[in-house]
Design a protein around this nucleic acid. Structure first.
Lengths: 210, 210
DNA sequence: CAATTACGATATCCACGAGTATCGGATCAG
DNA sequence: CTGATCCGATACTCGTGGATATCGTAATTG
């Protein structure tokens, strides 16, 4: 977490406790607004209203807009435990379809929209850029890397370019939402798997053509 | 073109002519600033300074910031003639490599950055969204569609899912620049062609796996 | 030359949003 | 109860940027 406005100096004698359960509400509201309006279009007031709080309450916990957004985006990054719980159905296709299931939900569409809405500020803010790579496409690509490597190891496919193939689904889906402004339906996701990724896996790319 | 501030009423008797050769300079400056700072980060003053003009000169030709950006983005859309001049080397790989050549240039990286920088405003402005689909990834996808269809027609490959495969290179390259913030090197482009697209072409996706 | 318009530069108006300050009411510790 | 702190609400400051207006100068027509 980025530095809050915690009281450090005087060991206070009492007073109303800060209701920390509202942190999550405010951060969720921040992500909602970010997904809808982007960083520049988002105002602290929008966040406060959506969270049912006062602007002062937000500023009491995060000193600047940037700090608020940083903490909010950190919620997007999957924990290491997330990568441990990858599906294991026995076939690559089964694993991919299972792992894409949450990606066709609204929850994950918001994630992509947040990433898209932070591009402009990421250009000028090192911290935002850093937290974006961690919470954006990279974990998703890493998950695909694991699934593909596992399929190759168990002999389901021959040797392939794991790094290149692991990027196909995450990058294409991200671009579809962020740039083409189209939803990731289960049909589209499965279509990509069956028409692009799995066919590419089947033909090992040893021979080149001139 | 969107409506300018052209004089229409009084048949004027004379006066200094508007130097229309500077339109292009201003619009190019607009694209440069858009690519660097996005729509919200761009100010009319940045554009004017980069174009070596005064703000008043810009406002004399385009009434609002939106109008200026609309005209600028229209310059990104390739004319119909562009799609007629697609490479024809005899092999799909040759065509793809040749057609990707300009995409690895700075010129084309700017195009993608402009598209990325306009996402936030496109969410709220119908006109921007419309002109973006025309000048963004769609023409690029269409070009790939033509190349792939041609290769199938000449018997170089069996039947494939043309629409899905035509999106692979444009979407992945766009996302790499706009989201991952990495350059499109010739190595990366050719790597995609050899490790993803052509392998996927080779194995026709008739059989499915459960 | 005179009238007219474009141009560069600059001043100005205006709206908006980040961040601060204040206030009344609520909630805790002692 | 008392003092300290949180909360919601509101007013406020202040910088920025879109848009307009003005002015002196340059170019063009008659």
């Amino acid at each position: 977490m980025s530095e809050r406005t915690e009281r450090v100096g005087p060991p206070s004698r009492g007073g109303r406790k800060r209701d920390h359960s509202r942190d999550a509400v405010i951060l969720e509201a921040t992500l909602d607004v970010l997904a809808e309006s982007g960083f520049d279009g988002m105002t602290i007031d929008m966040v406060a209203v959506r969270a049912g709080a006062a602007r002062a309450t937000v500023y009491r916990r995060w000193p600047t807009k940037i700090d608020l957004v940083l903490d909010a985006v950190k919620r997007l990054a999957p924990g290491p435990a997330e990568l441990e719980r990858l599906p294991d159905t026995g076939s690559l296709r089964g694993d991919l379809v299972a792992s894409m299931q949450p990606d066709t939900s609204e929850e994950s569409e918001r994630r992509v929209r947040v990433v898209a809405g932070l591009q402009s500020i990421a250009e000028r803010n090192e911290d935002i850029a850093a937290v974006l790579t961690g919470g954006g496409t990279e974990p998703w690509i890493e998950a695909n890397r694991i699934l593909i490597r596992r399929a190759v190891d168990r002999g389901e496919y021959g040797p392939v370019d794991v790094d290149a193939l692991a990027q196909v689904l995450p990058l294409m889906c991200t671009c579809r939402v962020a740039v083409q402004r189209l939803p990731i339906t289960p049909e589209y996701a499965i279509g990509l798997i069956d028409a692009v990724l799995l066919p590419a896996m089947r033909s090992t790319s040893k021979e080149k053509f001139g």
